[in-house]
């Protein structure tokens, strides 16, 4: 996906949340405050546009912790470029969802 991709504010928030380490749906919902009916469809579209990718957690890990396996999301290279462009477009994005480095400063 080209770096010129312009994301909606919601999609940019989700990208930012994933970048900050919220790697599954519920944590993104908690971080952004958005409902599931908004977060998941947005993640599907981001995945379709190859800005994020998903993978299933290994079953053995989930079994060891006695819980169901989760689907994890992470930014792709294109997603990272798009997020950089979105941060310039939405300057408050990093303040709303500060990255771990920002939080530690």
């Amino acid at each position: 996906m080209a770096s010129e991709t312009k994301l909606s504010h919601t999609a940019a928030m989700i990208l930012q949340a994933i970048d900050t380490g919220c790697v599954y749906g519920f944590s993104i919902m908690e971080m952004t405050g958005l409902p599931s009916g908004t977060v998941y469809p947005a993640m599907r579209r981001l995945e379709r546009d190859e800005l994020i990718s998903s993978r299933w957690e290994r079953q053995s890990i989930a079994d060891a912790e006695q819980r169901p396996a989760r689907k994890y999301y992470k930014l792709t290279a294109a997603g990272r470029v798009t997020l950089e462009a979105s941060r310039k477009r939405y300057p408050l994005l990093e303040r709303m969802i500060p990255s771990p480095e920002g939080r530690s400063v």
Binding site: F26, M29, G37, P41
Partner: peptide, 10 residues
């Protein structure tokens, strides 16, 4: 329940 209702949109 609110979480599950969002499943329809997804």
């Amino acid at each position: 329940t609110a979480f599950c209702l969002g499943a329809f949109q997804d």
